[in-house]
Amino acid sequence: MPNEFKRHHLELNQVESFYGKIQALNGIELYIDKGEIVTLIGSNGAGKSTTLKSISGQVQPKKGTILFEGMDITKNAPHQTALLGIAQVPEGRRIFPRLTVRENLQIGAFSVKDKKVIAERMERVFSYFPRLKERLEQKGGTMSGGEQQMLAIGRALMMRPKLLMLDEPSMGLAPIIVEQIFDIIKEMNKEGMTILLVEQNAYQALQIADRGYVIQTGSIVLEGKGLELMTNQQVREAYLA
């Protein structure tokens, strides 16, 4: 099995996705290895979210393949991909507004039957986000943007994912909150979580990422180590100015 050595945790080969007749991805090529933080940066409408949605199954690619731990997940429905251990923190957080904080977290562990395991995972989430513990019975929709982002990440952690995908976690948040969220992302990664981070805030993202990809109109135009990309002339002009 010579491939065994080369196999990546997640691998996208020539993925093409459409919204109706409009092509959003023109053959995306990227991979993530276990334990990495990889970031996907690019401007609005470049195809960042579509890439995530193609992985999670919310958008079905027309061409190309997506392999997760060697398994072909290209045609999976979202709940099947989630069961395999890929969690997505969607853009705009998408908290269930009329469920309580507790219920939002429980939903994250929907596939887990053992109540003890659910309680353990919840404690783990509280260790990252102590504030959630104080608000357990509050409705998700009544929380501030920062708290909702914490809840959205906490909800994804309840799945104990093998790969955590975050879609614009800094969107609409005060700089100090963004700082906190990124610290926690870094910490989760240190503890072994593989992370795919999609960001418009390229500076923040590249600072914590092992590697990065730059996406432009549905294609990967640049890839490299986080720090390399940060000093790249093109990237500086386009995204860090």
Binding site: S56, G57, Q58, A77, P78, H79, A82, L83, A87, Q88, P90, R94, F96, P97, R98, L99, E103, Q106, I107, G108, F110, S111, R155, M159
Partner: peptide
């Protein structure tokens, strides 16, 4: 029942939580 309420509020996100919508 909780899954039902979640799906009613946001079907797409519910499916990301491994709920078979």
């Amino acid at each position: 029942g909780m899954a039902m309420r979640a799906v009613a509020q946001d079907r797409e996100t519910a499916s990301l939580m491994s709920i078979n919508v």
